[in-house]
Design a protein around this nucleic acid. Sequence first.
DNA 1: CTTGCTTACGAGACTCGTAATAATT
DNA 2: AATTATTACGAGTCTCGTAAGCAAG
Lengths: 313, 313
Amino acid sequence: MKLQQLRYLREVAKHGLNLSVAAEALHTSQPGISKQIRLLEDELGVDILVRNGKRVVDVTKPGRVILDIAERILQDTENLKQVGREFRDQAAGTLTIATTHTQARYSLPNVVSAFKQKYPKVRLTLQQGSPPQLAEMVMAGEADIAIATEALDQYPKLLALASYQWRHCVVVPEKHPLLKESRVTLEMLAQYPIVTYDLAFAGRSHIDEAFRARGLAPDIVLSAVDSDVIKTYVELGLGIGIISARAYDVKRDRNLRAIEAGHLFGTMTTRIAVRRGTALRGFAYVFIELFAPHLTRAVVDATLMGEGSSYEL
Amino acid sequence: MKLQQLRYLREVAKHGLNLSVAAEALHTSQPGISKQIRLLEDELGVDILVRNGKRVVDVTKPGRVILDIAERILQDTENLKQVGREFRDQAAGTLTIATTHTQARYSLPNVVSAFKQKYPKVRLTLQQGSPPQLAEMVMAGEADIAIATEALDQYPKLLALASYQWRHCVVVPEKHPLLKESRVTLEMLAQYPIVTYDLAFAGRSHIDEAFRARGLAPDIVLSAVDSDVIKTYVELGLGIGIISARAYDVKRDRNLRAIEAGHLFGTMTTRIAVRRGTALRGFAYVFIELFAPHLTRAVVDATLMGEGSSYEL
DNA sequence: CTTGCTTACGAGACTCGTAATAATT
DNA sequence: AATTATTACGAGTCTCGTAAGCAAG
């Protein structure tokens, strides 16, 4: 049995059981893939792929189990390399954070600068995307950590830990009638055109749910992935905005006023997620702890241990 | 990175960091081992072994982590082969049970015959040893399942599940004075020479503890690993025996009488243990369930899942 | 008739074992 | 002096890529 065979197999599975595409992805030849997979099947004594004549059409039952185990083995080989990198220079490397615009813009700046100070040699990369995209990035190993309020706890392959809670606020232009109210209600909000987050972002699901529960049909005139975009359009008078209270800054947002709205939409939990079974670099733990001080290395490892298993670096 | 390199590394670690011995164990040459390990170190970019000139004297800190991961990878390659065997013929293979004499003689016969009837093609092997030896056997992969009352829950690498409970009894020759007592006490027993289990067997620890707690120093004239041996010497008049109540059979042991003694030594729990991270053959689950009906496959897998992780075969 | 898997074959890399070398105990 | 690791080198194996063959859509 060769690791190469497992790599080939994984790649074939990943590319819809098409050996040619897998070969291309691996920069090698179709025949090589074909042969090595057959050798693996011979050695294990079972068919992994279901062939219809000369087409691969499915994965056999044992094949599915084999794919799972192969995946874990390959994951571990990655972990071995990670260990090497980690010890060669504890303080150098790359950390890729997959997150939403709002996090990147309003939650991470402090963390990032503190981290950079501590690990000047670590190359930090911020990837942006929708929460499901972030999850995919981490699962594919393209990012080390995902941070988002939505979706992250929906993937068994990820370990999603609650890192902080926040609430929404309403932003309006100066002198907006809503500013006279001592305590806004959903009914009041529903009378104005609304600008807020795109579906699948930053608690939008809670917003929709809150209105629906009261039988209200709010007029969402614009949705965006991005608190700054929302604020811009509110300034333009397009409507009132519903954004994260964290994304409103009294000093910076001089043309806007914020109205407390936590009581309307409930409390959101922002989660930080890593892929299970992956050995994290030491500085990745530090990043997590900077972001959410209660998530110390001991806590993260303990949670990982209880499920997959991780290694002390 | 090659699986072979990981195998070499593991073997070196297993044989006290002696490349020569490892080479011998693997039926290959020292230079091969040396070279492959160096190649692995080169690829990972860290030293794994600490060399003092030309002697290997220790494992580096990263080396320890690497060994752990390598171990898991190799374990998984074994699991892959296991999957092959499993699917090639679901009902054939080998099941090795490591257990104590007492279990083999008094608890397993029913289970074994039921199992044999269900899986006539499976080759069953019973290995005997002391509980720590049994644990070692399972951890080394020499046995699939260990069954014993002592020690099995002391090893993190093993998953030990309670399978049944039992109590001790006192066996004496016919017409022994103790038979006149309605309810024996530890003090009464301490007046006679005692024959019982060897240290580390079948609840001997509880026996010692019970006497010690009452400040009694029983006269253990003979200890054996084996209920039959104990009974034989009791028949010879060497002393009174303390054995598992399960090991006394009214019909078979005509020359002996049993006296209830559960109240003196407490309740013992016999455990069944498997190695964590190992893919069990389907029939191994069946064996476990035959032995302890509450330990269904679902229960065992759920417990394994919660910790390492297993694969559905 | 195009796409895609398998078989055939040859070049090149790599593993492994023997022999020689060097460093510890 | 004996044990043990490393270096050197050559034989044999194996992987991989090209080319040809062939089955399926």
